[in-house]
Nucleic acid binder design. Structure first.
Length: 921
RNA sequence: GCCUUGGUGGUGGAAUGGUAGACACGAGGGACUUAAAAUCCCUUGGCCAGCAAUGGCUGUGCGGGUUCGAUUCCCGCCCGAGGCACCA
C-alpha cells in the first residue's frame, strides 16, 4: 500500500479538530509545561517556509513533553494591531480590521495544514476589545502606580500622596522626573492642578515632555527599538528628534531588576548580552562644577566614570537640548549659540549618524570651575553630548577620551596627559591602565586604584557622590495612529487633567479616513463624539509592543472577563517554560514584556517575576535564488556550465519552476509572456540554473510557500525537512533540493509496516539486533530533543529505519515504540500507523518507551590505541571490563609483544568507558 | 571601535578531548524494466602507490601552545554573520 500523505494528513487534522485533541485544562495531577511561540503579525503575504521553522520545533517539543507525561500549554494567536494594515487602509480606504481578519484566516489555514498541536480555544488577537481591555487595564494600573526605590517595587499612587502630605518630596526615594523639592506644607498648599502635575512626575505610565523620534512620513513618534540607522524599522522613513509631550512608561525604574533577572533565566549569552548593553549599567560619580555666566553662578552636575582624570579637565560640554544652555549662554555668544541650536535641530537622526566623524560645537561664553583643582575651564555646547544620558553635561578630558580629544583638536583646546608614558600627540589614551601623573594626590597610583580614590575624595570634599547610571530610557508609549489600543484616558479642565477611563474596554471608534487630520492631529481626532462626559478622550493609541507584552498571561485564561488571568490558573501555569522566536525582539518585546510582567508581579497579579524561563532563537531561513542566463540581444538562454562561452545577463527565475537546479523548460515558457518563444542552449539535454543565497522575497522570485510543499510532499515531510536542514538556532538557506531525501525516508518507514500491499506487522519476538537499533534510537532521541538537536535526531531515525529495513523487521515489539518515537516529528503518519496497529485512541497521551541502555550498548568495541605519536594499533576489548581490568588486559598483551612491537609499556591511560592508550619506551 | 557568534568535502551538516566528515543532497557506476517512474546496491575529502585486496601521506581559516592524543581546551592573528555605537 502506498504512503498516501494527502489522505492521511487531511484525515488526522480533521479528527484532531473535531475531537479537540489538543484542548488543555489545568490538570493538577500532571506537571505543567508551557511552550510558547512568538505570535505572528498576520501580514498580507502569508507564510513562507521560513516562518514555521520555530513553530515546528516548538510543536515537536510540545508533543514530546506530552508523551513524557507533562500537561502542555501550547497556544497560538495574532499580534494583530500594526502599521502595514493601517498604511494599506490609508491607501485604499479598506478598514484595517477587514484586512487583518482576512490575513488571519489565511494564516490559520496555512498553520492548520502543517498539523500543529495548538489549543485553538485559547487563541488571542490583540485587536479584539475583549483582549485589549486587559492591555488598557494594565496601562491604568501603571498610571495609578509609582516606583519605590527603597522597596524596589511598584506601589499605588495613593501611598505616595499620603507620604507627600506627611513629609513632602524627601519622604520617599522614588523613580521620578526631575523637579524642585517640596515640603509637606507646600504639598498641602498645592492647587489640585499642581498636585496632578507633580504626581505625573512619579507615575509609572506618565505623560511628559521629552525628545522623541519623530517620523514625519508615518506621522508618528517611535520608540528607540523601532528606529534603526536613523530610519523607521517599519517603512524605512527618516526619523528626527523633536520635543513633544508623550505618554511614557517608566521602564528605567526597573533597570536594575531587568539586569539582575538575566542571571536567573536560561537564554543565550548573546541575547542576554544584547539586553545588558541596552540597559547599559555604568559605575561612576556625579560631581558639581560651579559655573559662571558673567557673575551669575550656576551649579552644573556632570557624570563621569573616570573620576581619576578630573585633573585633566580642560573644558566642559553641554548637550544642545540641555536646559543649562539657556542659562549659561552669554550675551555675546547668543547669536552663535542660537545658530548652532538651529543647525542641530534641523538634522535628521540619519544625518547625525552619517556625520559621527565630523565634530561640531559652539562656545557658550561661560566658564566653570574644576572643583578638584580650582581651574577655570570654558563651557562648550556640542551634539556629541546627549541630553538623555547622565546629566546632559560632561567634563571633558581630551587626553583620555577619544571624543573629547577630537573636539579639543578641532577647537584648539588644551590637552593635559595624566598617565605616565602615554603619547597623546596623535590620539587619546583611553585605556584604564598605567600610573597617574599631573594629578595631585593621585600621582603614582595605578589607574584602577585611582578611580575609587578619586571618588572617595569627591565624596569627602562634598562636591559629588558615587552614582550608577543606566542607558535604558523610558519607553515612549503614544503613537499618532489609528490601528492600536486607544488610551483609556480623558481630559478634564481643557487638557489639564488626565483622568482614568475605567469602564473598559474603551473600544476604537469607527472612522472612514485613516490619515492624520489636516492640522496634524492623530486619526482618532476624526472620530465623532470621541469624548467622555463631555471631556475629550486621548487621541493617540498605544504602540505595537503594548498588546504583545502580556499575551502569554492571557493564554492561561483567555476568556476571563474579570481578570487578566485568574489567580489559580496563573499559579498553575506560572510562566513560560520554553519560548521560541526571532532574535529581532531582543531589545523590544523581550524587554517590554519583562518590564510589564515585573510590574504586574509587584502588584500581586502574577506569581513569577520573569515571564520566560528558557528562550531559543530560531534562525532565519534565507532564500535560495535561481538564475537563467540570457544571451545578450537574443531570447536564447545558455545553461549554467556553458554561459561563459557567451555574453549573458543573469535573470532571476522563479524557484518554483526549477527542481534540483534544473529548469522546467515548458513552465519557464509559460512563466512570463516574453519567454514564450525562448530557446535554450542545453548541457546533457538539461538546462542547469545558477544559484545564490539571498533574502527570501517576492522580488527575487525565491519565495517557497509551505502550501506547495505540503501539496507535493506532505506536512510530515515539510516538518521533518525543516528540522533536518540544521540546528534550529542557526540561520540557513532554504534548499528544496534535499527534500527528496526525507520524503524517501518516510516512504521507507511506511514500508516497514507492509509487505507489498498487505499490512504485515507480526507478533513475533524481536531479535537482539532489532532491539539494539530501537534502544539506540530512544537514547539518542531523549538526549537530542532536550538539547534541541532535532537535526541529528532525524538522522538517527534514518539510520534506524535503514537498519530495520535491512533486517526485514516487521515485529510489533519494535514498530509500535518506533511509531511513538516519530510522532512528535511526523504526527500524521504516526497516528495513521498507530490506528492500523489496532489502537483506538490517538497516541497523544500514550507513553514514551523506556530506554534500556544495556540493550542499546555494543558488546564489543574497537579501541584505537596510539603509541606515542606514530604507531597505531587496534585492540579489541570486551566493553564489560572496568578500567582496572582493561589495564591488566593491556599489560597481558604486552607479554605477547604483538601490540608493542617489542617496546616496553611505561604508562597505561584508561579513560573509563571510552578509550585506552599506553605510552611506550 | 566595542560585544556576541561562527569558520569542517561540490552542498546542508555530524563529531565538545579519543578511528574527522555520521546522516542527507549532488555526482559517478550498477541491478530491475521494452522504456520511464519508483525501488535497491556500490563508489564519492585530497594526493600517491598497486591489476587487486589494500597500503601510505595529507587534511577541520592561519600561526603558536597544553596533551600520549586537539575540529574540540588556551594564546595571538585573518575572514564572515548579527548586535551596539558620540552612553562620558
Amino acid at each position: 500500500m502506498e504512503y498516501d500523505f494527502r489522505r492521511i494528513e487531511k484525515k488526522w487534522q480533521k479528527k484532531w479538530a473535531e475531537e479537540g485533541t489538543f484542548k488543555t485544562t489545568e490538570d493538577k495531577t500532571k506537571p505543567k509545561y508551557y511552550v510558547l511561540d512568538m505570535f505572528p503579525y498576520p501580514s498580507g503575504a502569508g507564510l513562507h517556509v521560513g516562518h514555521p521553522l520555530g513553530y515546528i520545533a516548538s510543536d515537536i517539543y510540545s508533543r514530546y513533553k506530552r508523551l513524557k507525561g507533562f500537561n502542555v500549554l501550547h497556544p497560538m494567536g495574532y499580534d494583530a494591531f500594526g502599521l502595514p494594515a493601517e498604511q494599506y487602509a490609508i491607501q485604499t480606504g479598506q478598514h484595517p480590521e477587514i484586512t487583518t481578519v482576512n490575513n488571519i484566516s489565511r494564516y490559520r489555514q496555512q498553520l492548520d495544514q502543517i498539523g500543529f498541536s495548538y489549543d485553538w480555544d485559547r487563541e488571542v488577537r490583540t485587536c479584539d476589545p475583549k483582549y485589549y481591555k486587559w492591555t488598557q487595564w494594565a496601562f491604568l494600573k501603571m498610571f495609578g502606580s509609582w516606583y519605590d526605590n527603597n522597596l524596589q517595587k511598584a506601589r499605588p499612587i495613593q501611598v505616595l500622596e499620603e507620604a507627600f502630605a506627611k513629609g513632602g518630596s524627601s519622604a520617599v526615594d522614588a523613580a521620578c522626573n526631575e523637579h524642585d523639592p517640596f515640603t509637606a506644607e507646600q504639598w498641602n498648599a498645592f492647587s489640585e492642578k499642581e498636585k496632578v502635575d507633580m504626581l505625573m512626575n512619579y507615575r509609572i505610565a506618565y505623560q511628559g515632555e521629552t525628545s522623541v523620534n519623530w517620523c514625519p512620513q508615518l506621522g508618528t513618534v517611535l520608540a528607540n527599538d523601532e528606529v534603526k540607522d536613523g530610519l523607521s524599522v517599519r517603512g524605512g522613513f527618516p526619523v528626527m528628534q523633536r520635543k513633544m509631550k508623550q505618554w511614557q512608561l517608566r521602564v528605567s525604574a526597573y533597570a536594575e531588576r531587568l539586569l539582575e533577572g538575566l542571571d536567573r533565566i536560561d537564554w543565550t549569552d548573546s541575547l542576554k548580552e544584547m539586553q545588558r548593553n541596552w540597559i547599559g549599567k555604568s559605575y561612576g560619580c556625579e560631581a558639581v562644577f560651579k559655573c559662571y555666566n558673567g557673575d551669575e553662578e550656576h551649579d552644573v552636575t556632570i557624570f563621569t566614570t573616570r573620576a581619576d582624570t578630573m585633573f585633566g579637565v580642560t573644558f566642559m560640554v553641554l548637550a544642545p537640548e540641555s536646559d543649562l544652555v539657556e542659562v549659561l549662554t552669554t550675551q555675546e555668544q547668543r547669536p552663535a549659540v542660537d545658530e548652532y541650536l538651529e543647525y542641530v535641530k534641523k538634522k535628521t537622526e540619519r544625518e547625525r549618524l552619517a556625520e559621527t566623524k565630523s565634530v561640531t560645537g559652539v562656545f557658550s561664553g561661560s566658564f566653570g570651575v574644576n572643583p578638584m583643582n580650582g581651574k577655570r575651564v570654558p563651557i562648550w555646547i556640542s551634539e556629541y553630548v546627549l541630553a538623555g544620558y547622565g546629566t546632559g553635561a560632561i567634563m571633558a578630558v581630551p587626553a583620555h577620551d577619544s571624543r573629547d580629544y577630537a573636539f579639543a583638536k578641532k577647537f584648539n583646546l588644551p590637552i593635559i596627559p595624566l598617565i605616565e608614558g602615554c603619547d597623546v600627540s596623535e590620539e587619546s589614551f583611553d585605556a584604564k591602565e598605567g600610573r597617574m601623573m599631573n594629578s595631585g594626590f593621585m600621582d603614582g597610583m595605578e589607574v584602577k586604584d585611582a578611580i575609587p580614590a578619586a571618588i572617595d575624595y569627591v565624596e569627602k570634599r562634598g562636591f559629588g557622590h558615587r552614582k550608577v547610571n543606566y542607558r535604558i530610557r523610558d519607553a515612549i508609549f503614544s503613537r499618532q495612529r489609528y490601528w492600536g489600543e486607544p488610551f483609556p484616558i480623558y481630559y478634564k479642565d481643557g487638557m489639564a487633567k488626565p483622568m482614568p477611563f475605567d469602564k473598559l474596554p474603551l473600544t476604537l471608534p469607527e472612522i472612514t479616513e485613516f490619515k492624520p487630520t489636516e492640522n496634524g492631529e492623530p486619526p482618532l481626532a476624526r472620530a465623532k463624539d470621541w469624548t467622555y462626559e463631555g471631556c475629550p478622550l486621548e487621541t493617540s493609541t498605544m504602540p505595537g509592543f503594548a498588546g504583545s507584552s502580556a499575551y502569554y498571561l492571557r493564554y492561561m485564561d483567555p476568556h476571563d472577563d474579570n481578570a487578566l488571568v485568574d489567580k489559580d490558573k496563573d499559579e498553575y501555569w506560572r510562566n513560560v517554560d520554553l519560548y521560541i522566536g526571532g532574535t529581532e525582539h531582543a531589545t523590544g518585546h523581550l524587554i517590554y514584556s519583562r518590564f510589564w510582567n515585573k510590574f504586574l508581579y509587584d502588584l500581586g497579579y502574577v506569581c513569577e517575576d520573569e515571564p520566560f524561563k528558557k528562550l531559543i532563537n530560531q534562525g532565519m531561513i534565507q532564500g535560495r535564488s535561481n538564475f537563467v542566463y540570457r544571451i545578450v540581444g537574443t531570447n536564447k538562454f545558455a545553461s549554467y556550465g556553458l554561459k561563459d562561452q557567451y555574453e549573458t545577463t543573469e535573470i532571476h527565475v522563479d524557484v518554483n519552476i526549477v527542481r534540483n537546479d534544473r529548469l522546467d523548460l515548458e513552465a519557464f515558457k509559460k512563466w512570463r509572456p516574453e519567454f514564450a518563444d525562448a530557446e535554450f542552449v542545453l548541457e546533457n539535454g538539461e538546462y542547469v540554473c545558477g544559484w545564490a543565497i539571498e533574502k527570501m522575497s517576492k522580488s527575487m522570485y525565491n519565495v517557497v510557500n509551505p502550501d506547495l510543499i505540503c501539496e507535493t510532499y506532505g506536512a510530515d515531510t515539510l516538518r521533518l525537512y525543516e528540522m533536518f536542514l540544521g540546528p534550529v538556532e542557526q540561520s540557513k538557506p532554504w534548499d528544496t533540493n534535499g527534500i527528496d531525501g526525507v520524503n524517501r525516508f518516510l516512504k521507507k518507514f511506511w514500508r516497514l509496516f507492509f509487505n507489498g500491499d498487505d499490512f504485515a506487522v507480526t507478533d513475533e519476538k524481536a531479535s537482539p539486533e532489532e532491539l539494539k537499533a530501537l534502544h539506540k534510537l530512544i537514547g539518542k532521541e531523549e538526549g537530542d530533543i532536550e538539547s534541541f538537536s532535532f537535526n541529528t535526531t532525524v538522522s538517527a531515525f534514518m539510520i534506524t529505519v535503514n537498519d530495520l529495513t535491512a533486517m526485514k523487521c516487521h515485529e510489533r515489539e519494535i514498530l509500535e515504540p518506533l511509531t511513538i518515537l516519530i510522532s512528535p516529528f511526523c504526527p500524521h503518519i504516526a497516528e495513521e500507523l498507530w490506528a492500523m496497529l489496532g489502537h483506538n485512541e490517538t497516541i497523544t497521551y500514550s507513553h514514551f518507551p523506556d530506554f534500556n541502555a544495556s540493550l542499546a550498548a555494543e558488546d564489543n568495541a574497537t579501541y584505537p590505541v596510539s603509541f606515542n605519536g606514530k604507531m597505531r594499533f587496534t585492540v579489541d576489548l570486551p566493553k564489560s571490563l572496568n578500567p582496572k581490568e582493561v589495564e591488566e588486559h593491556i599489560r597481558s598483551l604486552e607479554q605477547t609483544g604483538k601490540y608493542t612491537n617489542g617496546h616496553q609499556i611505561v604508562k597505561v591511560i584508561v579513560v573509563p568507558g571510552k578509550i585506552v592508550n599506553f605510552v611506550i619506551k
